[in-house]
């Protein structure tokens, strides 16, 4: 079942001679139960793609549909609610609020989204799985880059989203952790029927993807051959 669909997306930044065509006629769809990996070099438009997919910015042309609803037809409030309830964002930088401890990062979400989050036991298991259960009372500035990234992953999963949009979630992780995160994404997709979309230049994740896309100069294409090469 298609959860997220991008139709003929174009994105331009700037005007006149400084106008750049960052996304060039992109068509993309993600199914529940699958891990999608979008691989591309720096500046290729990965973050732009992901933020458009999650409704954080609007495409210059084209449409984004989530569960059959056009994002452009939703109000700002409805888009907020959608992000809170259905999407788990893992951003490339600044995922955590500096003045909240790890536990409080979850508490804050619970104050807004009161129901249908992970229960305490589930959260504890997740934190254990990610190797961060010892960090509950630490502030973000007391965490290493990799630890904050894993807390950010846990935070995104806390709301039991239908879709996970992750921007370089493994950039600061060593190979052992990358494997764990890859397995976690795979398990989430298979066991909880979530659509996982990861943009990255980290080829180490390819083993855990169902579909691998390449993005280059704003154009995207499915390239599952990459899997075989690396695998």
């Amino acid at each position: 079942m298609t959860t997220l669909q991008l139709n003929n997306i174009n994105k331009f930044f700037g005007t006149g001679t400084s106008r750049v065509h960052v996304l060039n006629n992109i068509n993309f769809s993600a199914q529940k139960g699958e891990v999608n990996l979008v691989i591309g070099p720096s500046g290729s438009g990965k973050s732009t793609f992901l933020t458009i997919a999650g409704g954080l910015q609007t495409p210059s042309t084209g449409s984004v549909e989530l569960d059959g609803n056009k994002l452009s037809s939703l109000s700002k409030k409805q888009r907020d609610a959608l992000r809170l309830n259905k999407i788990g964002f893992i951003l490339q930088a600044y995922n955590l609020i500096p003045y909240l401890t790890v536990t409080e990062q979850f508490k804050l979400v619970k104050k807004i989204k009161k129901e249908n989050n992970l229960d305490d036991q589930e959260l504890e298991n997740l934190m254990k799985q990610l190797g961060i259960s010892e960090l509950t009372n630490k502030y973000p500035n007391e965490l290493s880059g990799g630890q904050s990234q894993r807390v950010a992953i846990a935070r995104a999963l806390y709301t039991k989203p239908d879709i996970i949009l992750a921007d370089e979630p493994t950039a600061a992780l060593d190979s052992k952790r990358v494997i764990e995160v890859g397995k976690l994404f795979q398990a989430l997709a298979k066991e909880q029927n979530i659509a996982v979309i990861v943009v990255t230049h980290d080829l180490r994740l390819i083993d855990y993807a169902d579909n691998v896309y390449e993005i280059m100069d704003g154009q995207m294409r499915l390239n599952n051959d990459l899997k075989k090469k690396v695998g």
């Binding site: 409030k77 959608l82 600044y94």
Partner: peptide, 16 residues
């Protein structure tokens, strides 16, 4: 504002 931007991305309502 930077922290608020993160929270907005997570879908925390502006009113909060």
């Amino acid at each position: 504002l930077q922290n608020y931007a993160v929270l907005r991305a997570q879908g925390i309502p502006a009113r909060t």
